[in-house]
Computed example of a mutant assay.
Amino acid sequence: MTQTDAAPGVTTGKPLIESDRVEGTAVYDPTGDHLGSIKRLMIEKISGKVTYAVMSFGGFLGIGADEHTIPWSKLTYDTGLGGYCTDITEEQLRGAPSFYRERDDYDWTDRDRERELLDYWGAPYYWGI
């Protein structure tokens, strides 16, 4: 595999990565077990900062998988694993507030919902207070 053909999540030695190459990258729990994978990124329009990763977990071959929005600050890239590590457990994911577009209550303009999400994960508000 050449440097330009690297699989999602594999470090290529470049400091930046295209968003479509992040999609599908594995996420590992605190014990190093595969927890899920990145489905999409949420980017704040004005600052250009990645604020959230929507993570898919469970199911089989994408069928029956759940999605949860994780603050980007909860993910750290691990070159040895070729994926992202987090201190989030599967139990925490199952109890997390849902916030994704397949739900009727999807509204990314609702700061109260974002506060609920960020408070649940113990993550700072990306927009400042």
Rank of each mutant, 00 (worst) to 15 (best):
E90V: 12
Y106C: 09
A26H: 02
I38Y: 02
I38E: 00
D29T: 14
P30L: 03
P15N: 13
I38P: 00
D105A: 06
V22C: 12
Y77F: 09
Q3S: 15
F57V: 04
A26L: 07
G83P: 01
I88N: 01
D66N: 09
E23D: 06
G58M: 02
L81I: 05
G24E: 04
D66H: 13
W108E: 14
I46P: 03
A6Y: 00
G59R: 04
M42Y: 12
D5S: 08
D33F: 11
Y126V: 06
R101F: 15
T25N: 10
Y100L: 08
L41R: 05
T31F: 12
T2E: 10
W108L: 14
T79P: 15
S47G: 03
G24M: 05
A7M: 14
E18M: 05
I38R: 02
M55A: 12
R111L: 15
P30G: 01
L117V: 00
D110C: 10
D66G: 13
H34W: 06
D119K: 10
D110V: 06
L118C: 11
K74E: 11
D112L: 15
E23A: 10
D107S: 06
C85R: 07
K49F: 04
H68Y: 08
T12G: 02
R40C: 10
L75G: 01
S47Y: 04
I70H: 05
C85K: 08
L75P: 00
L75K: 04
G58W: 03
W108Y: 12
E114R: 11
P30M: 04
T89C: 00
R94G: 15
D104L: 15
S47C: 04
L118H: 12
E91T: 09
I88A: 01
D110W: 09
D20C: 07
G9E: 00
A6C: 09
Y106G: 08
H68E: 14
T2Q: 12
D105E: 08
L117M: 06
K14W: 13
E23L: 01
K74M: 11
Y120K: 07
I17S: 05
Y28V: 04
A6P: 09
E44N: 12
S98F: 10
H34P: 06
H68L: 10
W121P: 05
E90I: 07
K39H: 04
T51G: 02
R103F: 09
D119T: 14
Y126L: 11
E90D: 12
D87M: 03
I70Q: 00
Y106K: 12
G59H: 10
L117D: 13
L118K: 05
M55D: 01
G48T: 13
I88K: 00
I17H: 02
G9D: 05
G80Q: 13
E91M: 13
H68I: 14
I38H: 01
G9Q: 01
Y125I: 14
Y106W: 13
P124I: 01
I88T: 01
G24V: 03
E67Y: 13
L61Q: 11
Q3A: 12
I63L: 09
T25H: 10
T69L: 09
W127K: 08
K45S: 15
Y125Q: 07
K74H: 10
R115I: 09
K14P: 05
K49R: 07
P124M: 06
A96E: 00
Y125G: 07
R94A: 11
G48A: 06
K14M: 14
K49L: 11
V22F: 05
D20I: 09
F99H: 07
A96L: 03
I46V: 11
T51N: 04
G64W: 07
S37M: 08
F57Q: 08
G48M: 09
M42N: 07
